[in-house]
Design a binder for these strands. Sequence first.
DNA 1: GGTATTTGGTTTGTATACAATATGTATGCA
DNA 2: TGCATACATATTGTATACAAACCAAATACC
Lengths: 234, 234
Amino acid sequence: MQADSSPKDRVYATLVSNILTLDLRPGADLDETRLCAEFGLSRTPMREVLRQLAGEGYVTLRQNRGAQVSEMSQTSLRAFFIAAPMIYSAILQLAATHRSADQIDTLRAAQAAFCTALDDGDAAKRALANIQFHRVTGDMSDNLYLSPSFNRLLLDHARISITFYAPQDATQQRNIDTARTQHEAIIDAIVARDAQAAGDLAIAHWQLSRDEIEKYVMPGALDVPLGTTARSAG
Amino acid sequence: MQADSSPKDRVYATLVSNILTLDLRPGADLDETRLCAEFGLSRTPMREVLRQLAGEGYVTLRQNRGAQVSEMSQTSLRAFFIAAPMIYSAILQLAATHRSADQIDTLRAAQAAFCTALDDGDAAKRALANIQFHRVTGDMSDNLYLSPSFNRLLLDHARISITFYAPQDATQQRNIDTARTQHEAIIDAIVARDAQAAGDLAIAHWQLSRDEIEKYVMPGALDVPLGTTARSAG
DNA sequence: GGTATTTGGTTTGTATACAATATGTATGCA
DNA sequence: TGCATACATATTGTATACAAACCAAATACC
């Protein structure tokens, strides 16, 4: 999010990245002392970082029992399916309306990075670059009240994507190219200040993700904990 | 939110309440040392409370420059007007769908408290009780991804309501009674699991607030800082 | 043999002391 | 007189030491 000026910011960015990429699994316990040793930071600032992460939904804090990476469940997946199209659509409409010229440059840069990540082939890097793209649209939308939910959605969207990513799946390979194209179209709509088109593209883009996820969410698999499926299979 | 078990929770609850009721004005500087002295708490836990409050949007933290109560501006008011009907409607629809029997009791209790506050006549208490009512609907909706924005909206909704409250205004007096009735209707819709009706009521209920606010937001007053208007006039 | 209780160790929560950074004032120079 | 710079002060950021709460294992009792 912000520049890595202070060591605290570095730790924050690292933890965020590790959580997004499932290097830190949902439900994983975060021992303060261990983190401090790992990052060369004292407990006081580390605790503050954890509290900030908790505020943004990355971790959950339990009284006298330390932090753990926030969980994902089938229940939360259902909530995700309800909230995502609504918020994504609103964000992109507002982005098209409110974007500045500078922000378009930033968005194009994010898209370039996204394409690089696509060619790279690493699911985690791809998800991270994708998030970055959408974060820029979030900045563009400039709505203090939608941002919290939008960011929370992006967090789990990244984690879900990585969870359900199957490298050998030909459909998914095609979908990745579609995503790239959709991003381009989104940029065009935003540049043209076409809120209607941006909103529609948000839905289409969401549909793409949704289809991929739904393939893996079978009614019989209701109690499979999310965040563990794909990694162990790949 | 949670029981006042620890002294930290008490400080948290007090600060939240003071911010919601504008006892702590938007933009007000929060000096750590002073707060510590006031609440009899050390700086370390106090800083953690402030970070939590920052995560939920109550305060903003600036590097090396302390915390201040989050501001409200005309810009944010516009964002509020866009986000509120959307989120409120979604929350109430979901509340009608997901609510449990216990939660209905809680909601009825909140409504009773709201009515008491209405008869009381204190704008701050009223706004607080109103928030409490809607928080219960938020719990009912049980959507992890909409909650952050919903809670952020409730925060500023309370502050805006208090800001633009005019005790002598006959229309507002009537509106207060309307709000009471609408709450009752909302309860009925939720009890009946009628998502459609709940969503419609959310919009109607929002409209009521919107009209009150809009009366005071004139195009010429674009740079009047929110949170200071009504208090000084009353 | 099973359950309850106590006890040791580990981990979190808090307080205080110290370091670093920012602000405001005063002084010197143009 | 105006501005810039240096210094003093206050406030934030960090580290460490201590207290309290939790967890697990071992022992005693039923």
